[in-house]
């Protein structure tokens, strides 16, 4: 680069270079998740199908209706969100930790790509997988429910995308901190799974006795599952089983995204878990 190049021109060319970097990372991540589809796509679809059969059909037929809709219809949004959460998280944590483990993360670290591009590229991979699996899980649900109608597609889509973004960042932070493969499984097993199961996937927290209902309101996943269920079932579900205010839910998800994104960027800039 010429020494006489104007600063504005440099900024412009760096922006373009970073966009190429982002495009490269997105292609790499999507190629990866499609290449290993038996690991990334098939298992979550099978697991959720089993949930539909066991909780929706076999047990659900005895539960009857929940807030005015058949129980299986009530759990469809919860199961889709569970897939979105798990897959966004696990895609990023496994992809980035593998890169750390094999040391090919150095390919990115020595390049002039901005750290935010690395984070956004990995997030894009996690979000793609989450949306892909979420869509398949939603499609599979059509074999089990009589009618699948969505109250608001934009609302449903935006909640799913924001949730996928949030948990992709969570997976990224987990990968940064992980030193061995065992560390990759700790958060999903001991934090994510309990919070998801207790986050209103299979029930409305309005049905819980006190103090459990109040305690559940501190579980961030409640807001995501409920907002997603609101987007699908709002016009059919009894108002008393709508657990959250949709505005509060959006605000909460956005605040969590900002907090986690800032934390991940701070860690990346300091080289935590990456640089000696």
């Amino acid at each position: 680069m010429s020494e006489a190049t104007a600063p504005g021109v440099i900024q412009d060319s760096r922006l373009r270079a970073n966009l190429v970097g982002l495009q490269t990372l997105v292609i790499k991540e999507v190629t990866r998740l499609l290449r290993i589809w038996p690991q990334t796509i098939v298992p979550p679809v099978i697991t959720t199908t089993l949930y539909y059969i066991i909780f929706g059909k076999i047990i659900g037929s005895r539960v009857g209706e929940m807030g005015g809709v058949p129980y299986i219809e009530f759990i469809v949004p919860g199961l889709v969100m569970m897939s979105v959460i798990n897959n966004s998280y696990s895609n990023v944590v496994s992809s980035f930790f593998s890169a750390k483990f094999q040391r090919n993360v150095e390919e990115m670290l020595i390049s002039p790509m901005h750290n935010s591009v690395i984070l956004l590229g990995l997030m894009a991979g996690g979000m793609t997988r989450a949306m892909l699996i979420g869509s398949i899980v939603l499609l599979v649900s059509m074999f089990f429910v009589e009618t699948l109608s969505i109250y608001s597609i934009p609302l449903t889509l935006s909640v799913a995308l924001l949730t996928a973004a949030l948990f992709s960042i969570g997976g990224f932070i987990n990968a940064l901190l992980a030193r061995k493969f065992d560390d990759v499984a700790i958060i999903p097993t001991f934090v994510l799974t309990p919070l998801t199961y207790l986050g209103g996937v299979f029930y409305s927290i309005a049905l819980l006795p006190q103090p459990w209902e109040t305690i559940s309101r501190f579980n961030p996943i409640v807001y995501m599952v409920s907002a997603f269920r609101y987007g699908i079932l709002k016009d059919r579900l009894s108002p008393e089983l709508i657990d959250i205010n949709i505005g509060v839910a959006f605000a909460a998800i956005c605040v969590f995204i900002i907090l986690l994104f800032s934390t991940a960027m701070w860690m990346l800039n300091r080289g935590i878990g990456l640089r000696a």
């Binding site: 292609i27 390919e107 790509m113």
Partner: peptide, 20 residues
């Protein structure tokens, strides 16, 4: 320190992409 499951074309192309 490259991804052992990728092939040379991918590895080198990706590195080029990282450099914009």
């Amino acid at each position: 320190n490259f991804n052992q499951f990728e092939h040379p074309l991918q590895i080198v192309m990706q590195q080029a992409g990282y450099y914009g």
